[in-house]
Design a protein around this nucleic acid. Structure first.
Lengths: 239, 239
DNA sequence: GAGCATTTGTCCGTATGTATT
DNA sequence: CAATACATACGGACAAATGCT
């Protein structure tokens, strides 16, 4: 082995031939096998980590990582949970906080209520294969859900809850980009230093009446999920 | 200075107080000023680079970097050039290749022509402040443009060209995500190793007839542009 | 719970190569 | 050509987290 670039290429090929979760040779193994210094082995693995091909855990090792695609669009209904289950992985969501807060300015505008109107705010944390992966803040318009205290600790999907309350929830608007998360979210997702997340703001309305039901912001680990934003083509039939 | 984490925080604050393009202290300066080793100074600057806060150029130095926002949606018309000009930066686009190619399968489908139909393919390279920033591949539906050889080497905006040919171009569909670019694009954009780009596929139609005019794929430097995808809310008036 | 080996994280120091100015 | 600045690579030491006994 002569250069770090080669080392990265060799390791990448090897990693790509392995399955999600499999163990990647340790830094020490790589030193011995390819006769390079530890710093070079480290930098190669770190580059693969930056490309989301591996995950590294101090004390445990380096493991192959496979990102899951999640398409966001108006027409596609499948939840994150369904998408993840299809890929043979498991997803679970927990409510970490629930309370009544008065609507801040931009949210009041989105939900079409007067500023200061009390809203139910949910904070949820979604795990993929026991890894904290998505942190959600959701504001529910007044009176869209009956007995929220009961339903929300039990039901994992707010969409189902809305449907159960007699609504027809559709994603009416979203805005997505990639950004560093605020410190609170950084901790919740146990992110490594300097990492970025998908940030998706969204508004859910009733498909029939157009009434705003919920506004949300979600931070998603970019190394676990690959979000694909799609604008529907009104001139083509939905698949 | 005790830890690398502090050093990053201190440098980040300093960088954030500076303006785009300003010179950041060199690795050597940081060693002397904060009494750390070169490797620590390096890793700190590299982390700021990973957060898109600085750009590093071998032999030249490290410079403050400020990303530009570019919103993609159906309703927003402004071109990338206009967006960049508003931020006080300059954008230029060059046609690097133009030729006739038979339509590959997915493109033929998008443009609603038979597979193998000859299409005009454009390759363009957009510079922001003399930095190669976006590489575009564009396929034009048959006969949508008169005398393409003449117009395309002169006009920087294909949208204007379409308008000049009597069409009413609107963005009918897009799909956006973040991914490593293919090697050819990696070279064109002079990217550092292991970096990712925005990848935006798009289809432009005539707003009146719905006729497909153009399909395109664009790779954009994620450290120069922050793309924001937005789905319009049909229940709210456009701003 | 304690102890231990393994593995990655964080530092240091040094030397040489390469691109820019 | 020379000076500057970043890139690459070596080596070593210790810290911190994990997983197992």
């Amino acid at each position: 082995m002569t250069s770090g670039r080669e080392l990265v290429a060799v390791l990448e090929e090897r990693v790509r031939s392995m399955r999600h979760g499999e163990r990647v040779p340790s830094e020490h193994d790589i030193m011995a096998r390819y006769e390079v210094s530890r710093s070079l082995a480290r930098s190669a693995l770190r580059e693969l980590e930056a490309r989301y091909l591996v995950r590294r855990v101090q004390g445990a090792g380096t493991f192959v990582n496979e990102r899951l695609d999640y398409v966001i669009s108006r027409s596609r209904k499948p939840s994150l949970h369904a998408t993840i289950a299809e890929a043979g992985r498991t997803a679970r969501t927990f409510v970490v906080a629930i309370g009544s807060h008065s609507a801040p300015e931009p949210l009041a505008d989105t939900l079409n209520v007067a500023p200061g109107t009390p809203l139910v705010r949910l904070e949820r944390l979604a795990y993929v294969d026991d890894e904290p992966t998505m942190f959600l803040q959701e504001w529910l318009a007044p009176d869209v859900i009956l007995h929220p205290e009961v339903g929300l600790t039990v039901i994992e999907s707010v969409e189902e809850l809305l449907r159960g309350s007699g609504h027809d929830p559709v994603r009416a608007w979203f805005r997505a980009t990639v950004d560093p998360p605020p410190p609170l979210v950084h901790d919740r997702l146990a992110l490594p230093r300097g990492s970025r997340t998908w940030v998706v703001d969204s508004c859910t309305r009733d498909g029939g009446t157009g009434r705003p039901l919920m506004a949300s912001r979600a931070w998603t680990r970019i190394d676990v999920i690959r979000i694909v934003c799609e604008l529907d083509d009104d001139f083509r039939p939905a698949p």
